[in-house]
Design a protein around this nucleic acid. Structure first.
Length: 840
RNA sequence: GCCGGAGUGGCGGAAUUGGUAGACGCAAGGGACUUAAAAUCCCUCGGGGGCAACCCCGCACGGGUUCGAAUCCCGUCUCCGGCACCA
């Protein structure tokens, strides 16, 4: 053992040992002796290099995996690559590198980085979604779904990102902008393929409440995204045409207040009733959050509840995609209708008044529930009751029915790009749409394509790909040239991991053994994207008979972002820390401004390069700091000084072993016999660390507890060193410390374990047990309060009764003085460690 | 606007079945070792008062419940996240 701790050296040594010439000690197989534990982290997009967010995500997952292995589980801990996507294609356009080449190079580099971090993955299950043997199964799922009516094609207005030249799903539009590139999204009408996630909307919603191991925040976001609302569909007959308009409302209680009808510009009757030129004017404003625009059709409709005739308008703010594409407008009780009515001089009729009394405001809509007025036989009812009764009344007249609407839309998966899974469909002039037969899968991406970045997708220009024959009639046909949204790839990869690369992809036995994922770890940014799609896919997989599991992820941990201070030069903008040494800009010498702490990003230059970090401090330190600085679900503020502090702790452990080598060796294999503060502290630490890991993975406090044990150990070293029993205790404490440290800092734990003469890998050791009896303090500090204020602290023996504690407290001189001359009202004793004396 | 979550030292964070506020770490100050520096080790470290034993004030702010509140309840402010013409 060297005196100096050299992380680079020992980390490479142990990484090689773990990989063990092809026989990775972390590979998992089906086990009948051990319970399984499936630990999964979100796989990365191979963008080139890993970033600190990955380091944190994977450090968290690795501690869990290693901890569970020590606890006797058969741990499945795989890793792979979310390898399709736009950056590869953009690189092809810009630099002329083929996306496959670019992607595989990045994977090779990033895989080295992950191995260098000492992450305990089973690489025999590695997937890359861009490989035909992987995406074949995307196509297979697609065809199965097509057969079941879960995949279908339709024309609709879609979210279009002009910069990415592709369609985006609703979930991928953030604040009206593209989730990838931030460009403003526009609406465009296109034919595309959809997956019918809405077939599972109610099941997904119902099951949400069962996601006990998920952050409630994420569950809530999913529920809101599905957005169930219960209401009434009511039929309004159009005067003199024989047409009728069905509207959807959640406020049947306001039906008597309906003053006009609004149709979406895309509604069939809007086209029938409105003059085309004027309608086009309204359509221009459709889907935009701006002023309301309306057009009177000249027609009137009859309110089914009181036969009142009200005018029909076309309005830009009514969405065709939700409900029926038509609404009744109640300006008194809906702010949007109120604004519309104001603009077009339409009447307002109040039908609900505040329950507490008082007037309905005249400058805005009164949207709350209340008491009905001027509502015929329903006048006087409360809103909730009126909704029921009016709905029943309309239903009874055969003019409507109660319905449930959802905000969730089907998932549009067509992407007009090359680097994705080809949608396995063929268009035949004679037979129409024909799926590619299973024996012809995969439909492989052609290699010989040009990436110009202009015009249509490269696939549409590849003659060899485009032209094919119809599987059904053998005639000329052409292929679908759109590829799948890459979220399809990631919706089932956790199922693929259940089988090794050399095993069949969807093996029921393997899936049955390992699914569901016991612990999933990743960023909260996927709360409604990937996580909802995966829950949908898992149900499809279940309904295809491949698994009995409905929920893919038993427990979910969403880790916070990695943040760092930003630095700005008034002239040169954002600076890297290295460009601002001494608080001045390296280029112009002006004083820099220290900005707020924000998520690490290249554009703000507040990034730390993992390669550099590992080179300087080693993987163990990088891991330790990532886990120590904050609990996993919080944002983490990166701090170079904090990293040094983490390394200092490792060095202290190292130096302690080095300095005490002889003594430690002399008592090898001799367990301690006596009791001592050090032994007590050791048992207490095992208790705390175990509890902190089990309880919500609070690694920061677990590490703090280990630091405390190290502090105690360092202090104990000086006393009684000659004595053999003392040495036995020191060795005992140290062994336990190394065991507990090993999931966090596996390399240094392994090295020191070997140094103190342990014959086999620390990875194979069980997690240490604690003895509650041995952890108990002989004496406790008794806090004595008077009227809730601390007035004394004394040491008393463990286990005194409440009465004895009160006695001990009362006999203290200080307490006597404070109490004398006042009336004793009450005395409380709490948990054997606090006495509160109440005096008046 | 609606729905969530959070406000604790100079900083990251501990302490929640109501019971010693500030564990652990960082920064800062002082000291030891050294020719010197680094490293290491020791001490101090929420604010105020006092020679001292000690006392007062402090968990965003204002109330309340309680013997006792960072923790429970009501109100206010600020910050963060999600949704956003979803009828």
């Amino acid at each position: 053992m060297k005196k100096r701790y050299e992380p680079g050296e020992i980390e490479l040594k142990w990484q090689a040992a773990w990989a063990g010439n092809g026989k990775n000690i972390f590979s998992a197989g089906i086990s009948h002796e051990k319970p399984k534990f499936y630990c999964l982290e979100m796989f990365p997009y191979p963008s080139g290099k890993i970033h600190m967010g990955h380091v944190r995500n994977y450090a968290i997952g690795d501690v869990i995996a290693r901890y569970k292995r020590m606890r006797g589980y058969n741990v499945l801990h795989p890793m792979g690559w979310d390898a399709f996507g736009l950056p590869a294609e953009n690189a092809a356009i810009k630099e002329g590198i083929h996306p496959a080449h670019w992607t595989h190079e990045n994977i090779a580099y990033m895989k080295k980085q992950l191995i260098r971090l000492g992450l305990s993955y089973d690489w025999s299950r590695e997937v890359a979604t861009c490989l035909p043997e992987y995406y074949k199964w995307n196509q297979w799922f697609f065809i199965r779904m097509y057969e079941k009516g879960l995949a279908y094609r339709k024309a609709s207005f879609v979210n279009w990102c002009p910069s990415c030249s592709t369609v985006l799903a609703n979930e991928q539009v953030i604040d009206g902008k593209c989730w990838r590139c931030d460009s403003a999204v526009i609406q465009k009408e296109l034919e595309q393929w959809f997956l019918r996630i809405t077939a599972y909307q109610q099941e997904l919603l119902d099951a949400s409440d069962g996601l006990a191991g998920w952050p409630q925040k994420v569950v809530l976001m999913q529920k809101n995204w599905i957005g169930r609302s219960d209401g009434l569909e009511a039929v309004f007959r159009v005067e003199g045409t024989g047409d009728s308009i069905t509207i959807f409302t959640t406020r049947a209680d306001t039906l008597f207040g309906a003053r006009f009808i609004c149709l979406a510009p895309g509604h069939p009757l809007a086209e029938k009733f409105a003059e085309p030129g004027a309608l086009a004017g309204i359509r221009e404003h459709y889907g935009k959050v701006d002023e309301k625009h309306g057009l009177f059709t000249g027609r009137y409709a009859t309110n089914p509840v009181n036969d009142e005739k009200i005018p029909i308008y076309v309005a830009n703010f009514v969405l065709m995609e939700y409900g029926t594409g038509a609404i009744m407008s109640v300006p008194a009780h809906d702010q949007r209708d109120f604004e519309f009515a104001q603009k077009y001089g339409l009447p307002v009729k109040v039908v609900v008044t505040p329950e507490a009394g008082g007037l309905v405001p005249s400058d805005r809509a009164f949207e709350e529930d209340g008491i009905l007025v001027e509502s015929g036989p329903f006048t006087g009812l409360k809103s909730a009751q009126a909704r029921e009764d009016i709905s029943a009344f309309v239903e009874g007249r055969g003019m409507g029915r109660k319905v449930v609407n959802y905000r969730l839309r089907d998932w549009g998966i067509s992407r007009q790009r090359y680097w994705g899974t080809p949608i396995p469909m063929i268009y035949c002039e004679r037979c129409g749409i024909v799926p590619v037969p299973e024996k012809d899968l995969p439909v492989v991406l052609p290699e010989d394509v040009k990436f110009t970045g202009k015009g249509a997708s490269p696939l549409a220009e590849s003659e060899g790909f485009l032209n094919t024959t119809c599987p059904s009639c053998g005639g000329n046909a052409r292929r679908e040239t759109d590829t799948m949204d890459t979220f399809v790839d990631s919706s089932w990869y956790y199922v693929r991991y259940c089988s090794r690369k050399d095993e069949p992809a969807l093996d029921k036995g393997n899936i049955g053994h390992f699914m569901p994922v016991d612990q999933y770890v990743g960023g909260v940014e996927h709360a409604v994207l990937h996580l909802l799609y995966s829950r949908f896919f898992m149900r499809v997989i279940r309904d295809l008979g491949l698994s009995g599991v409905s929920e893919p992820f038993q427990r979910l941990l969403t880790q916070g972002m990695v943040c760092m201070e930003t630095i700005r030069c008034p002239e040169h903008g954002w600076l890297y820390p290295s460009e601002a040494e001494g608080g001045v800009c390296a280029r112009c010498g002006r004083a820099v401004e220290r900005g707020r702490t924000e998520k690490m990003s290249k554009s703000k230059r507040n990034v730390v390069d993992p390669d550099h970090l590992i080179k300087t401090y080693g993987a163990d330190t990088a891991r330790l700091f990532s886990l120590f600085a904050a609990p996993p679900e919080n944002d983490l503020q990166w701090s170079e000084k904090g990293v040094e502090g983490a390394q200092r702790f490792i060095q202290r452990v190292w130096a302690f072993v080095y300095d005490n080598m002889e003594g430690l060796a002399s008592v090898k294999g001799q367990p301690p016999e006596g009791v001592s503060p050090l032994l007590r502290k050791t048992h207490q630490t095992i208790m705390r660390v175990t509890r902190d890991i089990e309880r919500e993975y609070h690694f920061n406090t677990a590490i703090a507890a280990m630091m405390e044990l190290m502090n105690t150990l360092a202090a104990a070293e000086h006393g009684g060193r000659e004595e053999q029993e003392g040495l036995r205790q020191v060795r005992f404490a140290l062994e336990k410390l190394l065991l507990m440290l090993s999931p966090f800092c596996p390399h240094v734990a392994e090295e020191l374990w070997e140094a103190i003469g342990m014959p086999s890998s620390i990875q194979l050791e069980p997690w240490p047990e604690y003895d509650e009896e041995a952890a108990r303090e002989e004496e406790v500090e008794l806090v004595v309060q008077i009227n809730g204020k601390v007035r004394a602290k004394i040491m008393v023996p463990q286990g005194l009764s409440d009465e004895e504690l009160k006695g001990r407290a009362m006999e203290l001189t200080r307490i006597q003085e404070a109490v004398s001359g006042r009336q004793l009202a009450n005395v409380f004793a709490v948990k054997g460690r606090l006495v509160n004396i109440v005096v008046k």
